[in-house]
Nucleic acid binder design. Sequence first.
DNA 1: CATGAATGAGCATTCATTCAT
DNA 2: CATGAATGAATGCTCATTCAT
Lengths: 227, 227, 227, 227
Amino acid sequence: MERRVTSSLKQDAGLPRGTRRDAVRQFKKHLIRDAAKQIFAERGIEAASMREIAQSAGYTTGSIYLYFDTKEELYAEVLRDTLHALYVVVAESPLPAGASQTERALRGLWQFFTDRPADFDLGFYLYGGARPAGLSPQLDDELNELLDSVMVHIAQCLVADGLTAQNDAHHQAVLHATWIFGLLLMNKTRRLKAFDERAEPLLDSYMHNVLSTAPNRPRSQDRRGRR
Amino acid sequence: MERRVTSSLKQDAGLPRGTRRDAVRQFKKHLIRDAAKQIFAERGIEAASMREIAQSAGYTTGSIYLYFDTKEELYAEVLRDTLHALYVVVAESPLPAGASQTERALRGLWQFFTDRPADFDLGFYLYGGARPAGLSPQLDDELNELLDSVMVHIAQCLVADGLTAQNDAHHQAVLHATWIFGLLLMNKTRRLKAFDERAEPLLDSYMHNVLSTAPNRPRSQDRRGRR
Amino acid sequence: MERRVTSSLKQDAGLPRGTRRDAVRQFKKHLIRDAAKQIFAERGIEAASMREIAQSAGYTTGSIYLYFDTKEELYAEVLRDTLHALYVVVAESPLPAGASQTERALRGLWQFFTDRPADFDLGFYLYGGARPAGLSPQLDDELNELLDSVMVHIAQCLVADGLTAQNDAHHQAVLHATWIFGLLLMNKTRRLKAFDERAEPLLDSYMHNVLSTAPNRPRSQDRRGRR
Amino acid sequence: MERRVTSSLKQDAGLPRGTRRDAVRQFKKHLIRDAAKQIFAERGIEAASMREIAQSAGYTTGSIYLYFDTKEELYAEVLRDTLHALYVVVAESPLPAGASQTERALRGLWQFFTDRPADFDLGFYLYGGARPAGLSPQLDDELNELLDSVMVHIAQCLVADGLTAQNDAHHQAVLHATWIFGLLLMNKTRRLKAFDERAEPLLDSYMHNVLSTAPNRPRSQDRRGRR
DNA sequence: CATGAATGAGCATTCATTCAT
DNA sequence: CATGAATGAATGCTCATTCAT
C-alpha cells in the first residue's frame, strides 16, 4: 500500500513543464481506480462506499475527491478502463493464420469476461434504471463504439473463415456475440447451475453449430442439404 | 382471532362474511405490488426506497407495512408475480396442433419480456454484483424451478418437432433460451441499436437456424462423443 | 380470551339505569389493565406497544382508546391498581396478637414485591426523567399517600413491639422500609448475585439487628450494653 | 495507517506529532459523553435519542458516529465513566488515620450519588423491566466488579473499625450499602419528602446504629449459626 | 496535496393515535 | 361498541460530499 510515486517517474524530468506532475496524477488516479473496480465489483455500485474505496486505495475519504468529482465519475472511469481492456484483448489480438478465427474470437469474448468477473459485473451495472446519470452521453457512446469494433472483428473472422457472406457478416457476428453474452448472463446469475447445465459444454455445442454451417452458403434454403 | 364484520352493503350479500374486506385488501396489495414492480425495475432493488414505492402507490410510508412486513418480502412478492406470469404464458399456453412448437415457445419467451420490460429488469436485479442479492433461498429456488419448467417445456417442443433427440433436448433448450436472454439483454441495453441491428431480424435468423436443422439428422450422437 | 361479559353480570339488572353498562365497562377496563400490566412489566413502559397490549387483551388496536385516552393513562391505571394491592396486603393485613409484628410487616413488604415482580418493575418506571407527564399530580399524591399509610402501619408495629418510642416511630419506620426497598433494588438489578450474596440471609441479618434493639431503650448511648 | 500531520501551530511544539489532534478528539468525546449522560439520565436509555444527544452536544446527527459507533457504545462509555469516578471517590480516597473509616466510606457513597444525580439515574437504567437491559456482558461485568470493589472497601473499613469480624465483613458491607442505595432511591423518587422525612437525619440515625454496635461484641458467631 | 471532522439528507422500520365504517 | 386501515413523526444509523487546516 506504499505510495512511492516520484521515484519511478524520474525519467519524466525532460518533459515539458507540468507533464511529470500530470503523470504522477494519472498514476494516483490509477491506484484509486483499481481499488474502486474491486470494491464496485464486490459490492455493486450502490453498496460500494467512497470511504471503503478510499481506504482500500490507501487514501483518506476526502482525497478521492481531488481526483474524481463524484462517485459516478469514478465509476465511469472504472468502466472505461474495463472497456479499453476488452478492446485490446478481443479486437486487437493478432489473428492466427490457421483456421477457425471465428472460434478463437468468440471463445476469446467468453474468456475475457470469465477471467475478469469484476469487469463483467461492472458492465451489468450500466444497465437498468439506476444507470448513473453522468454516464450516458460520452461514456455510453464510447462503450458502444468499442463493443462494435469487437463485432466488426468477429465479422471479419466469419468472412475469413468462409462462414458468412460479406454482406451478412455483421448481422451474424452480432447474433453470435449475443449468444455469448446470454451465456455469460446465465452463468453469472447461476441459472445454468440451477438447470443442471454447465457453460463449457454449451459453448462447445454452440461452437459446433456455428462452425458446421458450410462456407459460401446461399443463406437460407440450402443450409439443410449441405450438411 | 377471526373478527368478521357483517357488512351492511348490498353487493356483499352473496359472499361469505369478510370476503369483501379480504378482496379489498388483495386489491390494495396489488396496487402496492404494481407500484413496487415499477420502482424496483427502474431503480434496482437496492436503490428503490419504500418511501418512493409508498408514494407511487398512493400510500404513506407506514401504510405499506400493513401489507408487506419488509422491503424484501415486497420484492419477493413482486418477483413471484412475474415468475408465475412467465410460467403461465410460456409453459402453459396451449400448443398449436400445427408444426413448429419450438418457434412458438422461443418467440413466446422473447415476447413475454419484451411486453414487460420491468419484469425483465427485475430478473436481473436478482443478481447484484457477484451474489444472488439479498434473496431468501426459498425464493431463489422458486425462481429457478419456474424457469426450469420453461426449459423443460422448450425441450418438449424440440422433441415434438423432431429437432432433437430426447436425451439432448434439455441441453439444447437451455442453449436456445440462453440466446433469447442474450438478445433481450442486448436489446434492453440498447447495444443492438448502437450496432445498427434490430432484434426482430436477428430473431428471425436465429429461428431459421434452429428450425433448419433437419429432423432426421443424427445430431445428438456426434455431439455426445464430444463431451 | 373469551369475553363473555353479560352473563356474569345479570344480577346487575335491578340497579339504577346505566349502572350495568358502567359495570360492564369497568370489567372490560380490568381486562385491558391486566393485560397491560403484564406487558408493561415485561417490556418496560417505553417498549410496550399498544398493539401488543390490545392483542394480549383480546381487543383490536383502536378499541383500547375507547377505554383509555392515551398510553400514559393506561399506565397510570395499571400503577394505581398495584398501589391499592400494596395497601391492602401490607397495611390492612390483620396484626397477629403474637410478638414481632414489626418483623411481620417488614417481611410482608419484601414479600409483596418479591411475589409480584411485575408490580415492582412498574413502580420503578415511575422514577426517572421519563416519568409519564400525565402521572404527576393526582397519581403521585395517591402513590405517596398509600405508601405513607404503610409507613404508619410499620411505625405502629414498632411501637407495639416496644422497639421504638412513639415520637421516633415514623422516623424508624421509614428507615427500615428504606432498607427493604434498597434490598429489592439490589436484588432485582442482580447486584446481590454479582456480590455473591443472597437476599434472604441479608434480610435475616437485618431483621435480627432491628429486633435485637431493646424495647423502651434510651435511644443512643445504651444500645451497646443491652446486647 | 498512521497519518500524523505536522502542525504549524506554535503551542504544539513540545508534543509528539498528532498528540494535539488526539487531545482535541478526546476533548470532543468528553463533550459528547457529558451531553449523553445528561440525556440518558433524563430520559432513560431507551427514550434517549441520538439526535437529541447530538444536538445537546452541539453536533449534528451523523457526527456522533465519528466518535461512538453505536448508541450502546456511547451508553457504555457514559456508564464506565461514572463507575470509574465512583471507584476513585469511594474506594481510593485516602483513609483518615482517625476513627470511623466506616462512616467515611458509607457517607462517601451517599455523597457521591447525591452530588451526581444523573449518575445515580444511569445505574438504574441498567435495569429496564426485568432484564439487565441491552448491555453487553462485558460492561455488566465491569460494572459489577467496580461496585464490588466498593463493597470490599467498605468491608475493610468495618474490620478496621472493629465493627465486624473478618468473615462477616462482606455480608455486612453489602447490607449497609443496600441501605444507602435504598435511601438514594427514596430520596430521588421524592418519597422521603412525601413522608415528611429528610435524608440527612435518617442517614445520621443509620450511621449511629451502625457505629454503636460494640467493637468487642462477638456478633458474627451467633449470626453464623442462624444461616 | 492530503487530511479527517462535519454535514444533513436519506433509509427501513415502528408505533401512538385517529377515524370512517 | 368495535374494527383495522391509515397516518406521519420518530428512531438508529449510513454515506456522498465539503472544507478548514
